[in-house]
């Protein structure tokens, strides 16, 4: 059974469809790259999955159960977490406190189990030496790492990544990618990114969106070679 699925979901802002009649199925352990031009509706689709936004119509299923009206915090506890395009770190709290919150409230950990897991996440995301620092004082790369670490710390079964590599240099992307590869075995991933290099080697399947609709959905190489993709991006 699919771990997460959308059935015909749409989301309108005023009269504009940001997401229109999208069916998407995600199986356990699968990594999907989600691509499409600016404004295609990728972030909106992720927001529908996390519960930040409610769909105008359609359903969202988790393990076959309808979770469409489940609030944001409950979906985090159920195992959906996102690293947002615009990092939502708590600037007045320390890096460690930032990571502790999802470990406590998302993953439901306490005591030694919590602190061990928090240490592990900090280690994995390369933030151990900055654990005591205020999050507001971090640079871009570290803020992106922290956003990723926060998502991971809630022990999600579905990890949604929204442009976690955007704005980074190639070696920096490689270091983020390493983190993601270490996470991959146990969980499904949906990764939105404009940079093919980032998705390569992580995502075996690619979904293409444009103007709110899903255009293509298939194996990495097949989608990459398709003419529809070329025309979507070239505007022909």
């Amino acid at each position: 059974m699919a771990i997460l699925a959308t059935e015909n979901v749409s989301r309108q802002f005023g009269s504009v469809f940001a997401v229109e009649r999208v069916d998407l199925t995600l199986n356990a352990g699968e990594s999907v790259g989600l691509i499409g031009p600016n404004g295609a509706g990728k972030t909106t689709l992720l927001s529908l999955l996390t519960g930040d936004l409610r769909p105008s119509s359609g359903k969202i299923l988790m393990d076959g159960k309808d979770v469409t009206s489940l609030p944001l915090y409950a979906r985090v506890r159920a195992g959906i977490a996102r690293a947002a395009q615009i990092p939502k770190t708590f600037s007045r709290l320390s890096v460690r406190e930032n990571v502790s919150l999802p470990a406590f409230f998302g993953a439901g950990l306490a005591g030694d189990a919590a602190s061990e897991w928090i240490d592990e996440v900090l280690e994995m995301s390369g933030l151990s030496d900055r654990a005591g620092k205020q999050a507001g004082a971090l640079g871009l790369l570290d803020r992106k790492r922290l956003e990723l670490a926060k998502a991971v710390a809630s022990k999600p079964r579905v990890l949604l990544l929204d442009e976690v590599a955007a704005g980074l240099t190639e070696p920096e992307i490689a270091s983020i990618k390493e983190v993601i590869l270490r996470l991959q075995p146990n969980r499904a991933i949906v990764w939105v990114e404009h940079i093919p290099f980032a998705l390569q080697g992580v995502c075996s399947r690619i979904v293409v969106m444009d103007k709110g609709s899903k255009l293509l959905d298939g194996p990495f190489d097949e989608v990459w070679a398709s003419e529809t993709l070329q025309s979507t991006y070239m505007g022909t």
Binding site: V76, T89, F104, S154
Partner: peptide, 24 residues
């Protein structure tokens, strides 16, 4: 405490706090 940390997080960024699993 954990709950106190949650309060500080909510003060800092309310939707961000909910996204960590806090029932705001």
């Amino acid at each position: 405490s954990r709950l106190g940390l949650a309060v500080l997080a909510v003060r800092d960024n309310e939707t961000g706090a909910e996204a960590t699993g806090i029932n705001v």
